[in-house]
Design a protein around this nucleic acid. Structure first.
Lengths: 218, 218
DNA sequence: AATGATCTTCAGGTTGGCTTTAGGTGACCT
DNA sequence: AGGTCACCTAAAGCCAACCTGAAGATCATT
């Protein structure tokens, strides 16, 4: 028997003992199918799933409007995986190896709080920022952004019309371990302008000298 | 500055940008004191805290009947620590190093927060002063101000109708260390009049000779 | 290993706001 | 009236903040 299948059965057995009713799918396609056909309290998802990986399955479900709480199981444990899991719409994640106690505690917490509110896309004038899809568009034109660019834009869009200071942007778009040149913010602002303003002859991303930046609807 | 303090300041800055009001304690005793004296939406707790570690602080709070949601931060990342954190009454757990995105997602999950409290704009007659956007408008006309001009106007608007002395303005809009020519206040008053009064044929920013300045509604 | 994409650093150039200066205006007193 | 003092304001210098192109570093994918 495969390792994953053995794990799945263990989890199933344990959760059943806790009073959960459990369905198991052994690959991504089946999982997607079952998730769309049924209503679950919570979905536990392995990142490394045959036929469709966990991230993909997760985003597919979210795109389809399914906001069932999702717990993602990841093999690696870098912060990028965590962030990636959450970015893809998971509500929580657990790095392997994990203890049964922890999984159970987390699942109970997830079920109790009923999952996340659906992320809303933010609209600033004719600029639409979609956190769920990590995309943005101006009018009907889709603008491609790198993850970092998106993080900065998202932080600005969440507070559209307000001045967001450089240090706030640093705190929100960079790791706490980041210890580099704050000039990096200027570099990204510059890049964003080149993508969301210049091609459209707009100036919505304003500098407020000595204070920060402001994204305006106009 | 200690590493922990830097982290605390970063977290504080970032969360402040999200609309959280943040208090920071740099050791366990202070933390316990603050937690018992105030009511918080959520408590973020470092395991390795001077004078009383996170686990202890956590159980003490729970024993005292305080069930404020607690997010525990720890440097190690063994499953035992997780389990220990959860066993001690923490609601969630995060291993360092972590990213801001992750922390925020988790905190949001912990807190059921309403809309962000935005700093209130001040209205003086048909003059509206918006501290969040660092903008002001007279009627429907938006008036562009530099940060310094805004600081002076803000100080005057907060006490609309009252006389604000030159030295009060200096204290509020300039660094404590400022030791330049007090004439600078006059220069800024002049600039403000040119922007918020002259173009509208108004005289709301009055000089009170020998006393200071007064912003009137009229 | 190589490629391409993204992130970060660096350095030179530019700008705009802060501050100072200095001459002017008007108020108040004797 | 004349003098003094507080205030006004245009102009100019300075400097920190900001912009941006490019190169180096890092990461992911093939």
């Amino acid at each position: 028997m495969e390792d994953e299948e053995r794990l799945a059965d263990l989890v199933k057995g344990g959760l059943a003992g806790e009073g959960f009713a459990v369905d198991v799918a052994h690959d991504g396609r089946d999982g997607l199918w079952m998730a769309t056909e049924n209503t679950y309290d919570v979905i536990v998802l392995d990142v490394m799933l045959p036929r469709m990986n966990g991230y993909a399955l997760c985003s597919r479900l979210r795109e389809a409007g399914d906001w069932t709480p999702i717990m993602m199981l990841t093999a690696k444990d870098g912060i990028y995986d965590e962030a990636e899991a959450l970015d893809n719409g998971a509500d929580d994640y657990l790095a392997k190896p994990f203890s049964y106690v922890v999984l159970l505690a987390r699942l109970r917490a997830l079920v109790r709080r009923g999952g996340r509110e659906r992320p809303v896309s933010i609209t600033v004038g004719d600029l639409v920022v979609d956190p769920a899809a990590l995309k943005c568009r101006r009018g009907e034109v889709v603008v491609a952004l790198t993850p970092k660019e998106f993080a900065v834009l998202h932080a600005l869009a969440r507070r559209a019309g307000e001045v967001v200071s450089k240090s706030e942007l640093l705190a929100q778009a960079w790791d706490f371990s980041y210890d580099g040149d704050p000039n990096i913010v200027e570099v990204y602002i510059s890049a964003l302008r080149r993508k969301i303003d210049v091609p459209f002859g707009r100036t919505t991303l304003m500098t407020v000298r000595g204070a920060g930046y402001r994204l305006e609807a106009e």
